[in-house]
């Protein structure tokens, strides 16, 4: 990754220049292969692909200050999906193992415009498994990512060459067994090198870049504190205040690729956690009615498709992995 240069990568060009650029074409072919490989892997493992809703009365409350998009649904305030999380849990009433590739819209704070890793519109490969715990779901995620990267590396040598991406960068990844450290350990590690990371919050972007730059293979950060994530990440039964969740962080400074967790599926806990995250339970009516009658315990994750593509293709910025990129606050097609 060429982030040693003081200049940040260029902003998205006009659609014609962007779409006809050889680098964009190679990047999108890599993305296409990654998605095809995921479908192969998950379908053969017994997953059903669902088509995710785009609008609904309520969506993932999200985090880190991003704003939802309201739409007028016949006089009712509806939302564009910021993630498929509520529908993922609900879908387990139909099938035990599901996945979808879902478009998400988040009006991120303007300070994210030049992080090289935020888009206002992006896609997520969402997976949810009934009855799974964190060990099982991170194991699945690991195998899935290894399969996606191997398949892409083998299929598209010319594209990697055009992009100047050295596929030896994946040697460690393809061995599997990604690293693991807890949020508390990550905080301690960052503080030891003088980075003032709050123990109660998400790893901030600068901190995550520090950890990511030092790593040679992807690694999991687990056990985030409660105040840093949504109500659907389950709190540990044995360690109050600690969530049974994880992020997958790419090496080489590319940062977060994926978030996931065991899910809260107990009605009273969900309502309480909604209050702890400042949400008004009233607006989650359909979802709460559903969980009150019972939804399966589960675990799942969502891989940022553009972020994974950016990492695999070795691009400077995440917008380069999207055909029609929308940067926060930038008016674009």
């Amino acid at each position: 990754m060429n982030h040693d240069t003081p200049n940040s990568p260029p902003s998205p060009p006009a659609p014609r220049a962007h779409l006809s650029s050889p680098a964009t074409r190679s990047t999108l072919r890599i993305q296409n292969r990654l998605i095809a490989a995921a479908r192969e892997y998950l379908t053969s493992a017994g997953f059903t692909e669902m088509l995710p809703p785009v609008i609904g009365p309520v969506t993932d409350p999200g985090s880190r200050g991003s704003k939802q998009v309201d739409i007028d649904f016949y006089g009712h305030r509806y939302k564009l999906m910021t993630s498929a999380i509520l529908y993922k849990q609900a879908s387990l009433l139909a099938f035990d193992k599901i996945f979808c590739i879902a478009p998400n819209v988040r009006l991120e704070p303007l300070e994210t415009t030049d992080t090289d890793r935020h888009l206002a519109e992006f896609h997520q490969l969402d997976v949810e498994v009934a009855g799974a715990d964190r060990e099982r779901i991170t194991g699945l995620l690991e195998d899935l990512v290894v399969h996606m990267v191997r398949s892409t590396r083998d299929a598209l040598p010319a594209d990697f060459e055009l992009l100047g991406r050295d596929v030896d960068a994946f040697t460690e990844l393809l061995h599997g067994s990604f690293g693991r450290l807890t949020h508390a350990d990550a905080v301690a590690e960052l503080r030891a090198v003088g980075h003032d990371q709050s123990p109660d919050a998400e790893i901030d972007w600068a901190g995550e870049a520090l950890l990511s730059s030092k790593a040679a293979r992807p690694f999991f950060v687990t056990d985030y504190p409660k105040g840093s994530r949504g109500f659907y990440d389950r709190e540990s039964r044995t360690e109050p205040g600690v969530l049974r969740n994880f992020d997958l962080i790419a090496p080489e400074g590319f940062g977060e690729l994926c978030s996931g967790s065991e899910r809260t599926n107990d009605y009273a806990q969900i309502v309480t956690r909604m209050r702890e995250t400042g949400e008004n339970p009233q607006k989650y009516r359909w979802y709460l009615d559903l969980v009150r009658e019972g939804v399966p315990a589960s675990a799942g994750f969502g891989i940022g498709v553009e972020r994974l593509t950016r990492y695999v293709a070795g691009r400077d910025a995440v917008w380069q992995a999207n055909a029609f990129p929308k940067l926060p606050g930038v008016v674009s097609p």
């Binding site: 709050s198 919050a201 702890e276």
Partner: peptide, 9 residues
């Protein structure tokens, strides 16, 4: 937790 979430977000 609401205060922590505010600081986080």
């Amino acid at each position: 937790q609401q205060i922590r979430l505010m600081r986080n977000n």
